[in-house]
Design a binder for these strands. Structure first.
Length: 792
DNA sequence: AATCGGCGGCTTTTT
DNA sequence: GCCGCCGATT
């Protein structure tokens, strides 16, 4: 017993009081309001470990959900450290991934064979998950088939459908006013779209949650099973839950039963409202779950006080917050630094220069620094500056590897292997590599399939029945059908993902066809496909290792299962999913998990991507009204959400600031080109909200901004220059704003292609102003865009 | 069947 | 300013 106590103390020793309270909280709902850097992951992992080791809870009774795979992986790793192999019996995964697994299990369950859940009709356990691109394709098809008025962009319809799914509404449950033409379009398309998905044995991301909710609502027997199993549910980043996710939680943990539901989050860090997340979920939690205990974690262990003060100064302007204030017993630390720049290039240069400086001082490594921006479009200039200044950097952006065309092709083949009904995948690769099946043939195939009510794959089985096809087309189609059919048969037998990938690459000749092309680019693509095979091999190895670990767990000294629950399924959710399906699931839901921030490199990312990370030094660029806060949020007062958009921008700013441990640089440009146009934005309102005394003095003189830029010079080679204060020479020919800059006639100019010349006449304004130039000799008169000219 | 050019669009994007 | 889509062209 003494030993156990010591072990327990070990588990609690470096926790502060509220953290301990959350870890030791007994039964019933608990809301942990956890400010930035206050150790929330630590609370969740310690609580899980405590439940298992000191409260006799079986690990398989615990469901821990996160939003991102990265968060899930980190949590799992920490739990393995705390619990050893037993941790593999826990369910630690994302909402989507656990929903997907529960759905697959349910579809497989013999009791479900005649499942009465209409929304699930047509789905088999090997359903595939459609991504963004697939969705859009399907939307277009749905629009055609439902014959809707093309008054809306497919993208917009998709977005609206997504919204409906996030709100847990099926097509029939959509609330549409008859006069609302657009709403009618959305609803009709939504109906057709769902039909197409089911016909293809496919789901989209939204379906994973929505269909599970529908299933649990209509099948009390299934619901009961999971309610009984998961006696402890923990949710991370709860501020980002959307209504379906919340509904799912309420089904699994009904409020009236005082469930052991622990949600952890920070309303101030809710930045995904536009994706359907609802801050109300966290704000109203105590109401929805009567008797919920609330614990606040307000001690920040990450940032110096100055940084926290700045962050607080910004976030306090939001109304409708849970009252709390972060504090730290860390020193005040360095002042914040404001970087004023003439334009976005100067800004990027300055950031690169400061990064060099910090690195040279020796206290902060490249890997401890990050540059944030509001929109991806801003990254280009920053990247360029980093390259020229020889600052090693990584661009942190989602899931690059699996987004490459050739990898997606390979994935499409794999999905067809497990699910030949997947029309979107078939259309993607029917002529990849080129096998002479052109648009006309495909069109006829699609028509035929529609008329016969079968999938494209099935339709291609008897191509001679398709009207209008010549014999060559018939032959090619049946060849293609044979290929898919053979791959499908192989997949049924295959015991691991890698052999299936290998077989697929062999039979399709994807790699060879790229190699015959011979260009550098196609060689890289071929290489990517081999890497894809490598990923499958690695996946198999990991899976084997996890299986071993799970089988050796299980013999702990936890309490016995009560006899009435003896038939409860306690196996890992991943059990029984065939390897190839599991691999595909990982590709769809996890993406490129290994593409981690490079060691020894500065990280460049959007503010959204920065959530959950921390760095010694942070640069926030583009601190201008219109950039950050984004222009869309600027005129938000009268919009339907009453300034919620601005509130979200402010939370984003708070997230950005609180990523910094020691140094925070905020940077703005007096003007920047946006959509090819020079824009003069006022400094961000968030800057004005930060008390002056937190800043050192703005260190640079702000050079006068250019008004118009008739000549954009080629990039200077910044890296070759010294580090002194610089005056960029890009706009040495600043003009006065009239026409393309006063009278330019007669001016000597140089053009990259045409050489030297003299301006004859000019017309137009702004970036697309054109001039007629006499280049003399063979070239003669040319009308060119003024931007492409250098001063001669 | 592949390529070229014009046109529109355009925040963020865990899954 | 850049990308992606669509239609037209060879």
């Amino acid at each position: 017993m003494a030993l156990a106590l010591n072990a327990e103390n070990e588990l609690l020793k470096d926790l502060n009081e509220p953290q301990k309270e959350a870890v030791l909280h007994g039964d019933g709902p608990l809301l942990v309001l956890s400010g930035a850097g206050s150790g929330k992951t630590r609370v969740i992992t310690r609580r899980v470990a405590h439940l298992v080791r000191f409260r006799g809870v079986f690990p398989w009774r615990i469901l821990a959900v996160t939003f991102t795979n990265k968060a899930a992986r980190e949590m799992r790793e920490r739990l393995v450290q705390l619990l050893g192999p037993q941790a593999h019996e826990l369910v630690v995964s994302t909402f989507h991934s656990s929903s997907s697994m529960i759905l697959r299990r349910a579809l497989k369950d013999p009791r479900m064979v005649d499942h009465k859940v209409a929304e699930l009709m047509g789905l088999t356990p090997s359903f595939v998950i459609y991504d963004d691109g697939d969705q859009l394709q399907l939307i277009k098809r749905a629009m055609r088939e439902a014959r809707v008025d093309p008054i809306m962009q497919p993208r917009e319809i998709l977005h609206r459908i997504d919204g409906e799914k996030n709100a847990a509404r099926l097509p029939d449950q959509m609330v549409v006013d008859v006069d609302d033409a657009r709403g009618v379009v959305v609803q009709k398309t939504y109906h057709a779209y769902q039909k197409l998905l089911r016909a293809a044995n496919a789901v989209d991301f939204g379906d994973l949650l929505l269909l599970l909710v529908a299933l649990l609502r209509q099948r009390p027997d299934v619901l009961d099973q999971y309610q009984k199993r998961f006696r402890h549910i923990l949710v991370d980043e709860f501020q980002d839950t959307n209504p379906v996710q919340y509904e799912l939680l309420r089904l699994l943990a009904p409020p009236e039963r005082r469930p052991n539901l622990v949600v952890v989050g920070d309303d101030d860090q809710s930045i995904y409202r536009w994706r359907g997340a609802s801050v109300d979920n966290i704000l109203d939690f105590p109401e929805h779950f009567p008797g919920a205990r609330v614990v606040k974690l307000e001690q920040n262990y990450r940032s110096d006080q100055n940084i926290l003060d700045a962050a607080h100064a910004v976030i306090r302007r939001n109304s409708r917050r849970m009252p709390k204030k972060l504090w730290s017993d860390r020193p005040k630390g360095e002042n914040l630094t404001l970087l004023l720049n003439r334009d976005e290039r100067a800004e990027a240069q300055e950031v690169a220069r400061r990064i060099h400086g910090l690195q040279r001082e020796g206290f902060i490594k490249y890997s401890g620094m990050a540059v944030f921006y509001r929109t991806n479009a801003q990254s280009r200039v920053l990247e360029e500056a980093m390259r020229l200044a020889r600052v090693p950097y990584t661009l942190v952006s989602g899931r690059s590897f699996y987004d490459r065309a050739e990898v997606r092709d390979a994935a499409a083949y794999l999905r067809l292997m497990v699910n030949p009904r997947s029309d979107a995948d078939l259309l993607r690769i029917i002529n990849t590599p080129a096998r002479g099946i052109g648009d006309t043939t495909v069109e006829r195939l699609v028509d035929f399939a529609n008329q016969s009510g079968v999938s494209l794959y099935e339709a291609s089985a008897a191509p001679e029945r398709i009207t209008g096809l010549n014999s060559a087309a018939v032959r090619r189609l049946s060849g293609f059908h044979a290929l898919v059919s053979s791959l499908h048969a192989f997949a049924q037998e295959s015991q691991d993902a890698a052999s299936a990938v290998d077989q697929m690459l062999k039979e399709t000749h994807l790699v060879e066809s790229l190699q015959t092309e011979g260009s550098d680019e196609s060689m890289t693509r071929a290489e990517n496909l081999r890497e894809f095979l490598g990923a499958a091999q690695e996946f198999d190895l990991n899976r084997a290792a996890a299986a071993v670990a799970a089988s050796t767990a299980g013999d702990g000294d936890t309490a016995p299962v009560p006899p009435e629950e003896a038939d409860l399924d306690t196996s890992p959710l991943t059990a029984d999913i065939p390897p190839l399906n599991a691999f595909l699931e990982q590709i769809s839901l996890v993406g490129d998990a290994d593409a981690e921030v490079g060691e020894g490199r500065v990280a460049l990312m959007t503010l959204h991507a920065a959530k959950g990370l921390e760095f010694d030094a942070v640069f926030i660029t583009g601190m201008e009204d219109g950039v950050f806060p984004h222009s869309r949020a600027l005129h938000g007062g009268e919009s339907e959400d009453g300034g919620e958009e601005m509130a979200e921008e402010r939370r984003l700013c708070y997230v950005g600031f609180t990523r910094a441990r020691r140094r925070l640089f905020v940077s703005l440009a007096q003007c920047r080109s946006l959509f090819g146009e020079l824009r003069y934005n006022p400094p961000s309102r968030f800057l004005a909200e930060v008390p002056q005394e937190l800043f050192g003095i703005a260190e640079q003189e702000l050079p006068p901004a250019p008004k118009e830029a008739p000549f954009t010079k080629k990039k200077r080679n910044w890296a070759d220059e010294d580090d002194g204060p610089r005056v960029d020479r890009t706009y040495s020919q600043a003009a006065d704003g009239e026409g393309i800059g006063g009278d330019v006639r007669g001016m000597r100019v140089r053009h990259e292609q045409f050489g030297m010349g003299r301006i004859i006449s000019a017309d137009g304004q702004g970036p697309n102003a054109k001039v007629t130039v006499d280049f003399g000799g063979q070239v003669g008169l040319k009308r060119v865009i003024a931007r492409f000219l250098l001063p001669g």
